[in-house]
Amino acid sequence: MTETIVLRVSNLSKSYGGVQAVNAVSFSLASGELLALIGPNGAGKTTCFNLLNGQIAADSGSTEFEGRSLIGLKPRQIWRLGVGRTFQITATFASMTVRENVQTALLNFHGRLNSLVSLAERLYVDEAIELLARVGIAEQAARPCAVLAYGDLKRVELAIALANRPRLLLMDEPTAGMAPRERAALMRLTAELARASAIAVLFTEHDMDVVFAHADRVIVLNRGCIIAEGKPAEVRANREVQQVYLGSGSLFGAEHA
């Protein structure tokens, strides 16, 4: 696999009043690579994602996607470049069915969103079903999103995020709210997708089993700063990381102990 750098982040910072939510964060991500961004609650992970997909503006620093600066771009522009995103707290269209959720993303991807006359529900049906099948919820396609279980919503989010055939996926806690077995399955699926389609994946995860099983590399964030970076095994052995995680006690799979 050729190592092409997809995302390059340098010195990214953001503060809220006195709180330095993200502090001079730098890293890069290659296509097909799974990079886990971990850290205790409030470390700045979500803020990082929001900075990357343009939801909030950085105070300083730069982000580059395939050589293009993302600074100053809006989420929708960044999406257009080929970046998909899932949210920590799922954000789907509650008044639509699962399939329509994906279709809406597909409609925009195919530039059909301003059509006034065609029936949206009949467009890109197969493509939507295929995406849903890929994340394993094709059989729920006709159900309204409002009635879905939380874990299934996470899958819908993934399907939506894949609709624009992204080359970078930003996944904020993709498995939160799922049963342990489901988590492992979803991450395995993500890893397969990433490798098969050469998608770079940046994800956060509180379940360390998942992280160490699937991440190619791990970055540890604490109070906005990167305190460690490397192969899962290296990070696990890092003393500072251990200290940071002592408080929450979740680094070594304490959750499942």
Binding site: K74, A91, S95, T104, N108
Partner: peptide, 14 residues
């Protein structure tokens, strides 16, 4: 989409 979830709508390019 914009009504149900402006956040998601924005994130899929709307």
């Amino acid at each position: 989409a914009g009504r149900d979830s402006p956040l998601r709508a924005d994130a899929i390019g709307i």
